[in-house]
């Protein structure tokens, strides 16, 4: 695997500029650390909602019971934030590799970042404001 070399081989990177280089090194490190954490968060989350419980039973009241415990709100918020950051940064690699036209690439990136940011806000609002008293 040549993934270790990504920071210097990505076409978008300008290896001579220090700040760019630092950012790519940081990004490389972040993908690995967030990946390690997501390994537990994502697999536990999937097991709870699809394996140990059937999907059809994960209704509003199911969530209300789970989110009554702040631990699960924090758990789900971490999964939301790390999943979006890791996934969107991964998507940045993909866009750098396949969208070769600089203007299209810049436009697509701006769109994807805005989308991810909007969904981060939406997800955070959902986790923070959900009361669960209307559970049915």
């Amino acid at each position: 695997m040549s993934t270790a070399e990504r920071s210097t081989t990505r076409p978008g990177a300008t290896p001579n500029r220090r700040s760019r280089q630092n950012f790519e090194t940081w990004s490389w490190f972040f993908m690995r650390i967030s990946g390690l954490i997501l390994f537990f968060l994502a697999l536990i989350h999937f097991s709870l909602t699809h394996i140990f419980n059937d999907v059809t039973t994960t209704t509003v009241s199911f969530v209300a019971k789970r989110w009554a415990n702040p631990f699960w709100r924090v758990f789900d918020w971490l999964l939301l934030s790390l999943g979006l950051l890791h996934g969107t940064n991964g998507l940045r690699f993909i866009m750098d590799d396949y969208v070769r036209n600089p203007r299209k690439r810049a436009a697509l990136k701006a769109f994807m970042y805005a989308l991810a940011a909007a969904l981060f806000v939406l997800g955070t609002i959902t986790i923070v404001t959900f009361k669960g008293s209307l559970a049915g």
Binding site: T56, G87, L115, L119, L122, K131
Partner: peptide, 27 residues
């Protein structure tokens, strides 16, 4: 890539939690 696409959709369907009827219907 596919897991990311799923997460993006999933955030939207979960955001319906504050509208229990809609959430349960989609769900």
């Amino acid at each position: 890539f596919l897991v990311l696409m799923f997460i993006l959709l999933h955030i939207i369907d979960v955001s319906m939690l504050n509208f229990p009827r809609i959430y349960n219907e989609i769900h």
